[in-house]
Protein backbone atom coordinates (compact mmCIF):
# COMPACT_ATOMS: atom_id res chain seq x y z
CA UNK A 1 0.00 0.00 0.00
CA UNK A 2 2.75 2.38 0.94
CA UNK A 3 4.37 1.51 -2.36
CA UNK A 4 1.27 2.46 -4.27
CA UNK A 5 0.88 5.73 -2.42
CA UNK A 6 4.51 6.63 -3.00
CA UNK A 7 3.67 6.83 -6.70
CA UNK A 8 1.74 9.98 -5.92
CA UNK A 9 4.51 11.44 -3.81
CA UNK A 10 6.44 12.09 -6.92
CA UNK A 11 9.16 14.28 -5.44
CA UNK A 12 10.40 11.43 -3.27
CA UNK A 13 11.58 9.57 -6.34
CA UNK A 14 14.37 11.93 -7.31
CA UNK A 15 17.77 10.35 -6.94
CA UNK A 16 19.90 12.10 -4.36
CA UNK A 17 21.15 15.48 -5.50
CA UNK A 18 24.88 16.19 -5.19
CA UNK A 19 25.39 19.36 -7.21
CA UNK A 20 25.14 22.99 -6.11
CA UNK A 21 22.56 24.11 -8.64
CA UNK A 22 20.72 20.79 -8.50
CA UNK A 23 18.75 21.97 -5.51
CA UNK A 24 17.48 24.96 -7.44
CA UNK A 25 16.30 22.74 -10.28
CA UNK A 26 14.58 20.41 -7.85
CA UNK A 27 12.92 23.33 -6.13
CA UNK A 28 11.67 24.69 -9.44
CA UNK A 29 10.31 21.26 -10.27
CA UNK A 30 8.59 21.20 -6.90
CA UNK A 31 7.03 24.61 -7.44
CA UNK A 32 5.58 23.61 -10.80
CA UNK A 33 4.54 20.32 -9.27
CA UNK A 34 2.56 21.99 -6.50
CA UNK A 35 0.98 24.43 -8.93
CA UNK A 36 0.01 21.52 -11.14
CA UNK A 37 -1.44 19.54 -8.27
CA UNK A 38 -3.50 22.56 -7.31
CA UNK A 39 -4.75 23.05 -10.86
CA UNK A 40 -5.43 19.35 -11.11
CA UNK A 41 -7.64 19.34 -8.04
CA UNK A 42 -9.29 22.57 -9.06
CA UNK A 43 -10.19 21.47 -12.59
CA UNK A 44 -11.04 17.89 -11.68
CA UNK A 45 -13.02 19.10 -8.73
CA UNK A 46 -15.08 21.43 -10.88
CA UNK A 47 -15.46 18.76 -13.52
CA UNK A 48 -16.65 16.16 -11.03
CA UNK A 49 -18.97 18.60 -9.33
CA UNK A 50 -20.60 19.63 -12.62
CA UNK A 51 -20.94 16.06 -13.78
CA UNK A 52 -22.81 15.12 -10.63
CA UNK A 53 -24.83 18.29 -10.24
CA UNK A 54 -25.89 18.67 -13.85
CA UNK A 55 -26.40 15.05 -14.78
CA UNK A 56 -29.49 14.38 -16.80
CA UNK A 57 -32.57 13.68 -14.69
CA UNK A 58 -36.25 13.70 -15.51
CA UNK A 59 -37.53 17.24 -15.50
CA UNK A 60 -34.05 18.68 -15.69
CA UNK A 61 -33.31 21.01 -18.59
CA UNK A 62 -30.23 22.50 -20.20
CA UNK A 63 -29.51 26.20 -20.20
CA UNK A 64 -29.03 28.30 -23.29
CA UNK A 65 -26.06 30.50 -22.50
CA UNK A 66 -23.37 31.47 -24.97
CA UNK A 67 -20.66 32.71 -22.67
CA UNK A 68 -19.46 35.95 -21.29
CA UNK A 69 -16.57 38.07 -22.48
CA UNK A 70 -15.55 39.32 -19.07
CA UNK A 71 -15.20 35.75 -17.91
CA UNK A 72 -13.22 34.86 -21.04
CA UNK A 73 -10.81 37.72 -20.54
CA UNK A 74 -10.37 36.84 -16.88
CA UNK A 75 -9.46 33.26 -17.54
CA UNK A 76 -7.13 34.34 -20.28
CA UNK A 77 -5.27 36.84 -18.17
CA UNK A 78 -4.95 34.84 -14.96
CA UNK A 79 -3.12 31.89 -16.46
CA UNK A 80 -1.02 34.28 -18.54
CA UNK A 81 0.21 35.95 -15.36
CA UNK A 82 0.87 32.63 -13.71
CA UNK A 83 2.71 31.32 -16.76
CA UNK A 84 4.71 34.49 -17.18
CA UNK A 85 5.81 34.12 -13.56
CA UNK A 86 6.93 30.55 -14.13
CA UNK A 87 8.71 31.59 -17.31
CA UNK A 88 10.63 34.48 -15.83
CA UNK A 89 11.63 32.57 -12.74
CA UNK A 90 12.73 29.61 -14.86
CA UNK A 91 14.78 31.81 -17.09
CA UNK A 92 16.97 32.98 -14.22
CA UNK A 93 17.98 29.43 -13.46
CA UNK A 94 18.31 28.56 -17.11
CA UNK A 95 20.73 31.39 -17.72
CA UNK A 96 22.76 30.41 -14.71
CA UNK A 97 23.09 26.76 -15.67
CA UNK A 98 23.46 26.95 -19.43
CA UNK A 99 24.49 30.36 -20.75
CA UNK A 100 28.07 30.12 -21.93
CA UNK A 101 29.04 33.46 -20.44
CA UNK A 102 27.85 32.22 -17.06
CA UNK A 103 30.09 29.15 -17.06
CA UNK A 104 32.28 29.60 -13.96
CA UNK A 105 36.05 29.79 -14.02
CA UNK A 106 37.14 26.15 -14.10
CA UNK A 107 39.00 24.58 -11.22
CA UNK A 108 39.21 21.45 -13.26
CA UNK A 109 38.78 21.20 -17.00
CA UNK A 110 38.13 17.90 -18.74
CA UNK A 111 37.24 16.94 -22.29
CA UNK A 112 34.63 14.26 -22.85
CA UNK A 113 33.93 12.42 -26.06
CA UNK A 114 31.03 10.09 -26.74
CA UNK A 115 31.35 7.22 -29.15
CA UNK A 116 29.22 4.19 -29.93
CA UNK A 117 29.16 2.92 -27.21
CA UNK A 118 31.28 4.46 -24.52
CA UNK A 119 32.80 7.58 -23.07
CA UNK A 120 36.36 8.81 -23.25
CA UNK A 121 37.79 11.59 -21.09
CA UNK A 122 40.89 13.70 -21.52
CA UNK A 123 42.66 15.33 -18.57
CA UNK A 124 45.19 18.11 -19.12
CA UNK A 125 47.79 16.28 -17.04
CA UNK A 126 50.66 17.73 -15.05
CA UNK A 127 50.85 21.13 -16.71
CA UNK A 128 47.12 21.72 -16.27
CA UNK A 129 46.86 22.71 -19.93
CA UNK A 130 45.71 20.88 -23.00
CA UNK A 131 48.10 20.61 -25.90
CA UNK A 132 46.96 20.95 -29.48
CA UNK A 133 43.94 18.75 -30.02
CA UNK A 134 40.52 18.78 -31.63
CA UNK A 135 39.19 21.01 -28.88
CA UNK A 136 41.93 23.59 -28.64
CA UNK A 137 42.40 23.84 -32.40
CA UNK A 138 39.69 23.23 -34.98
CA UNK A 139 42.15 22.09 -37.59
CA UNK A 140 43.33 19.27 -35.34
CA UNK A 141 39.97 17.62 -35.90
CA UNK A 142 41.54 16.06 -38.97
CA UNK A 143 43.70 14.00 -36.61
CA UNK A 144 40.71 12.32 -34.94
CA UNK A 145 40.75 8.56 -35.42
CA UNK A 146 39.43 5.61 -33.49
CA UNK A 147 42.76 5.26 -31.67
CA UNK A 148 43.34 8.99 -31.22
CA UNK A 149 39.79 10.14 -30.52
CA UNK A 150 40.71 13.61 -29.31
CA UNK A 151 42.98 14.31 -32.24
CA UNK A 152 45.97 14.92 -30.00
CA UNK A 153 48.87 16.32 -31.94
CA UNK A 154 51.94 14.19 -31.12
CA UNK A 155 54.23 16.99 -32.30
CA UNK A 156 53.01 19.35 -29.59
CA UNK A 157 54.99 18.88 -26.36
CA UNK A 158 52.11 20.21 -24.28
CA UNK A 159 50.07 17.25 -25.46
CA UNK A 160 52.38 14.62 -24.09
CA UNK A 161 51.07 14.69 -20.53
CA UNK A 162 47.37 14.88 -21.46
CA UNK A 163 45.96 11.53 -20.45
CA UNK A 164 42.80 9.65 -21.30
CA UNK A 165 40.33 7.69 -19.23
CA UNK A 166 37.87 5.15 -20.59
CA UNK A 167 34.35 4.92 -19.19
CA UNK A 168 35.22 6.45 -15.87
CA UNK A 169 36.40 9.75 -14.54
CA UNK A 170 37.14 11.44 -11.26
CA UNK A 171 36.51 14.95 -10.05
CA UNK A 172 37.25 16.78 -6.81
CA UNK A 173 34.48 17.77 -4.44
CA UNK A 174 33.52 21.46 -4.02
CA UNK A 175 35.24 22.51 -7.20
CA UNK A 176 33.94 24.01 -10.42
CA UNK A 177 34.30 21.27 -12.97
CA UNK A 178 33.97 22.39 -16.56
CA UNK A 179 33.75 19.75 -19.23
CA UNK A 180 33.81 20.32 -22.96
CA UNK A 181 31.84 17.60 -24.67
CA UNK A 182 31.72 16.30 -28.19
CA UNK A 183 31.20 13.09 -30.05
CA UNK A 184 33.16 11.23 -32.64
CA UNK A 185 30.23 9.69 -34.49
CA UNK A 186 26.51 10.06 -33.67
CA UNK A 187 24.69 12.13 -31.07
CA UNK A 188 24.99 11.10 -27.45
CA UNK A 189 23.80 12.83 -24.34
CA UNK A 190 25.93 13.32 -21.27
CA UNK A 191 23.59 12.64 -18.36
CA UNK A 192 24.62 12.77 -14.71
CA UNK A 193 21.35 12.03 -12.91
CA UNK A 194 22.68 12.87 -9.46
CA UNK A 195 24.11 16.17 -10.66
CA UNK A 196 20.98 17.17 -12.61
CA UNK A 197 23.21 17.62 -15.62
CA UNK A 198 22.23 16.71 -19.16
CA UNK A 199 23.75 17.89 -22.39
CA UNK A 200 23.68 16.36 -25.84
CA UNK A 201 27.13 16.05 -27.33
CA UNK A 202 27.24 16.75 -31.04
CA UNK A 203 30.02 15.73 -33.40
CA UNK A 204 31.72 18.74 -34.91
CA UNK A 205 31.20 21.12 -31.97
CA UNK A 206 32.10 21.32 -28.31
CA UNK A 207 29.48 21.83 -25.61
CA UNK A 208 30.01 23.45 -22.24
CA UNK A 209 29.04 21.27 -19.31
CA UNK A 210 29.70 22.37 -15.76
CA UNK A 211 28.81 21.47 -12.20
CA UNK A 212 30.07 21.67 -8.66
CA UNK A 213 29.54 18.61 -6.50
CA UNK A 214 29.23 18.95 -2.75
CA UNK A 215 29.32 15.30 -1.82
CA UNK A 216 31.88 12.55 -2.39
CA UNK A 217 31.02 9.10 -3.63
CA UNK A 218 30.68 6.92 -6.71
CA UNK A 219 27.87 7.72 -9.13
CA UNK A 220 26.68 6.84 -12.60
CA UNK A 221 26.86 8.50 -15.97
CA UNK A 222 24.32 7.54 -18.62
CA UNK A 223 23.76 8.27 -22.28
CA UNK A 224 20.37 9.87 -22.77
CA UNK A 225 20.16 10.14 -26.54
CA UNK A 226 19.36 7.15 -28.71
CA UNK A 227 22.63 6.21 -30.40
CA UNK A 228 22.02 2.70 -31.68
CA UNK A 229 21.39 -0.77 -30.31
CA UNK A 230 23.95 -0.38 -27.55
CA UNK A 231 22.56 2.93 -26.34
CA UNK A 232 21.33 1.39 -23.09
CA UNK A 233 24.78 0.06 -22.25
CA UNK A 234 26.59 3.37 -22.65
CA UNK A 235 27.08 3.61 -18.95
CA UNK A 236 30.06 4.87 -17.03
CA UNK A 237 30.96 5.54 -13.44
CA UNK A 238 32.55 8.54 -11.88
CA UNK A 239 33.93 9.35 -8.49
CA UNK A 240 33.68 12.56 -6.59
CA UNK A 241 36.80 12.60 -4.39
CA UNK A 242 37.97 14.78 -1.58
CA UNK A 243 40.61 17.28 -2.64
CA UNK A 244 43.37 15.23 -1.09
CA UNK A 245 42.27 11.97 -2.68
CA UNK A 246 41.87 13.65 -6.02
CA UNK A 247 45.33 15.16 -5.95
CA UNK A 248 46.80 11.86 -4.95
CA UNK A 249 45.08 10.10 -7.81
CA UNK A 250 46.13 12.80 -10.23
CA UNK A 251 49.77 12.62 -9.16
CA UNK A 252 49.70 8.88 -9.61
CA UNK A 253 48.26 9.29 -13.08
CA UNK A 254 50.83 11.89 -14.04
CA UNK A 255 53.67 9.66 -12.95
CA UNK A 256 52.16 6.76 -14.86
CA UNK A 257 51.89 8.79 -18.03
CA UNK A 258 55.44 10.10 -17.68
CA UNK A 259 56.75 6.58 -17.26
CA UNK A 260 54.85 5.31 -20.27
CA UNK A 261 55.91 8.11 -22.57
CA UNK A 262 59.57 8.11 -21.50
CA UNK A 263 61.05 5.61 -24.02
CA UNK A 264 59.54 6.72 -27.34
CA UNK A 265 56.97 9.31 -28.32
CA UNK A 266 54.45 6.76 -29.61
CA UNK A 267 52.47 6.82 -26.41
CA UNK A 268 49.58 9.27 -26.84
CA UNK A 269 46.90 6.66 -27.14
CA UNK A 270 48.57 3.97 -25.06
CA UNK A 271 46.11 4.57 -22.28
CA UNK A 272 43.31 3.25 -24.39
CA UNK A 273 43.00 -0.43 -23.82
CA UNK A 274 39.55 -1.19 -25.13
CA UNK A 275 39.61 -1.72 -28.86
CA UNK A 276 37.57 0.82 -30.79
CA UNK A 277 34.25 -0.69 -31.73
CA UNK A 278 33.40 -1.06 -35.35
CA UNK A 279 31.09 1.70 -36.45
Amino acid sequence: MGDILSVFDMLSWFPENISTFGQELDDLFAIIYYISVAIFFLTFGILGWFLVKYRSRPGHKGYNYHGNNIVEVTWTILPTILFAGIGLYSDDIWEKTKYSKRVPKPDVEILVLGKTYGWTFLYPGADGKFGRNAYTDRTARALMTATNPFGKDPEDPASADDFMMENQFRVPVNANVVMRGSSQDVLHSFFLPHMRVKQDVVPGTWMNIWYNAFKTGTYELACAELCGGGHYSMRAEYQVLSKADYDKWLDGKVAEVAAASAPVAEAPAADTTAAAPSN
Binding site: L25, F29, G87, D91, W94, K98
Partner: peptide, 12 residues
Protein backbone atom coordinates in the same frame (compact mmCIF):
# COMPACT_ATOMS: atom_id res chain seq x y z
CA UNK B 1 4.39 22.82 -18.55
CA UNK B 2 7.17 21.09 -16.59
CA UNK B 3 9.08 20.44 -19.77
CA UNK B 4 8.39 23.89 -21.12
CA UNK B 5 10.46 25.24 -18.27
CA UNK B 6 13.90 24.78 -19.79
CA UNK B 7 15.84 24.26 -16.55
CA UNK B 8 13.39 21.60 -15.37
CA UNK B 9 13.69 19.98 -18.77
CA UNK B 10 17.44 19.54 -18.25
CA UNK B 11 16.73 16.69 -15.90
CA UNK B 12 13.56 15.20 -17.35
Amino acid sequence: VFMASAPVDIYI
